[in-house]
Amino acid sequence: MKHGKWPLIVTFLVPPVLLYVFFVVSPYLQAFQISTTDWLGYSADANPVGLANFKTLWHDDYVWNALKNNAILLGLVPVLTIVLGLFFATMLAMGGRKGSAGVTGVRGGALYRTVYFFPQVLSVVIIALLWKEVYHPNQGLLTSALHGLGLPAPTWLGDPATAFWCVLAVMVWSNVGFYVVLFGAAMSAVPKEIYEAVLLDGASRFTTLRRVTLPLLWDTVQVAWVYLAIFALDGFILVQLMTNGGPNFSTDVIGVRMYDTAFGSETKFGYASAIGVVMFFLTLSVAVLSLRVGRRERIEYT
């Protein structure tokens, strides 16, 4: 079969690489070029302005405000999602202990698994609209529930003090299901004997998770971390649809800033590209950093 290797590789790899270069790499390079111009997007005239856009950006309070929000998302969304994902996956895989089988999932695990996965099936746009209604300050599910208990309810998305956290909660909610399945799959690859041994040693469920499951799942957690970090740096769709960055820019994120600069309230494509370039480097650094920091020995089951 050796003589057939190269034609095969070429046939299968070259077209995707070409597509990738054409549709991904080349626009990236162009964005770099555009970011050094004052292009306004609706004519072919673009004058080179050097790094002026980046200089403006450095002094742009709205961009810094958006970055600050992204930083908070970056700090919280991955942690919350992974912790919740791991918790649910553990409960589904080994939460039940009373049966004769030793280690099993909680009762009704299949149902939970399906329910957790629901948000993943919905398009992000649907999720945003759905939650906008949940957060309806007068008729929404949350307000009604709180009023039912005789408690006062905030205006959720209408108040800068709460809007950001409301959006953050939706981000976590919409992501957890996927990671439950991802972690669940990874856990099923862990030999059952290990858990039985742990059980015999009398470890609690929490200790099992921390000392055994987590180290064994480290690779998967790391991948999840990178994905979620990139998601947190973006967050565009949910924010744009739920609050469009408001009220008073309290939920603004860098993606919304970029979009608004080019397609929204202005047509500054040069400046928007500069924001895009900054976003590119931020995302890249975060991805590289989290891979570096999280590097550990890989465990293989033989």
Binding site: Q30, V125, D234, L241, G255, M258, A262, S273, I275
Partner: peptide, 27 residues
């Protein structure tokens, strides 16, 4: 809001969206 669906999926990178942007243009 709801119409945004299709377009939005592509938008996280407005800089990229501009595709052949300035260079491909011209009168």
């Amino acid at each position: 809001r709801r119409s945004a669906a299709a377009g939005l999926l592509a938008t996280p990178a407005a800089g990229l969206l501009s595709g052949c942007a300035t260079s491909g243009g011209g009168d």
